[in-house]
């Protein structure tokens, strides 16, 4: 039994700056990290491994240098990491990306049962939250998004019950397996790698699957398979801030001012 976690290498956005002229990200010299939401997906897969003894595979579509991020996954103890990389995969939007990832999972599922696929809820560079649901749709898996807890998992009966974190409430959903989960940060606390596994990971193989392996129609991957067009990227205008009241001299009065303002903008529920 194999649990698949999908991860993405993203630029460390806390260090990203926007070029004021072209309005694009200045990627030069920005370190890459594992998409933070995906670290929780990976951790949850590892917990299932600890608990049920299943195996864990990690998939990532990206350029060859994404190998570095896959090695991070190896260092926390996954069994298999596969980099989906091919020139023809480049320039993909969320649809084309989910085609490639779904094809890879499909291929894995032919060797071994894959009851669960886990993704982060979204990436911090694209923020679309579409790839997970896209994969689920293409694979015909039930999709359980924004999961913050697996309430119950019955692998024998093929059932899962999860808690979804929605705005202001939680929703408990039960679904038959196989399922795809997208997870939020509250899901778990990612583990810290131990040294023996790290040292083993430094030399462990990262499998490379290109389109010769996946055999996808070139019209469904990369730029050609992407119906999304980027028209313009820009930094949104921000409302100018203002300093209200005198927080040091009159804290109570300032709080009143603030509350009134928030009420006026309908930002506070009474």
């Amino acid at each position: 039994m194999l649990v698949v976690a999908c991860i993405k290498q993203v630029p460390d956005t806390t260090q990203v700056q926007i070029d004021p002229v072209t309005n694009t990200l200045i990627r030069e010299g920005i370190p890459f990290i594992m998409n933070p939401y995906d670290t929780h997906a990976l951790e949850e897969a590892l917990r299932l491994k600890d608990r049920y003894g299943c195996r864990v595979a990690v998939l990532s579509m990206g350029p060859p240098n994404a190998e570095m991020t896959l090695r991070k996954a190896l260092s926390v103890g996954v069994d298999r990491v596969i980099l989906l990389s091919d020139r023809c995969f480049g320039g993909a939007d969320t649809l084309a990306t989910s085609n490639v990832l779904a094809a890879a999972i499909h291929k894995l599922a032919q060797e071994e049962e894959v009851p669960l696929v886990i993704c982060g809820k979204q990436t911090i560079d694209g923020d679309t939250a579409q790839v997970g649901p896209g994969i689920a749709t293409r694979l015909g898996y039930t999709q359980l998004t924004l999961v913050d807890k697996i309430v119950d998992l019955d692998l024998v009966a093929g059932k899962i019950r999860v808690s979804r974190k929605l705005e202001g409430r939680h929703e408990i959903v039960e679904s038959p397996l196989p399922s795809l989960l997208t997870v939020v940060r509250e899901m778990n606390r990612p583990r810290y790698p131990t040294v023996p596994i790290r040292l083993a990971a430094e030399v462990a193989p990262v499998e490379l699957w290109n389109n010769e392996v996946l055999q996808l129609d070139l019209q469904s991957v990369g730029l050609k398979g992407s119906p999304t067009w980027v028209k313009k990227i820009f930094s949104p205008e921000r409302d100018k801030g203002e300093i209200i009241g005198d927080g040091i001299g009159d804290p109570a009065g300032t709080v009143n001012l603030l509350v009134e303002k928030l009420l006026g903008k309908d930002l506070l529920e009474l």
Partner: peptide, 21 residues
């Protein structure tokens, strides 16, 4: 730390910050 990854919680972000930045 090295064998059990067992340490006070607040050190997790320190270790990651040190390694990444």
């Amino acid at each position: 730390v090295e064998m059990l990854a067992a340490f006070p919680e607040e050190l997790l972000s320190l270790f990651e910050n040190m390694e990444q930045r």
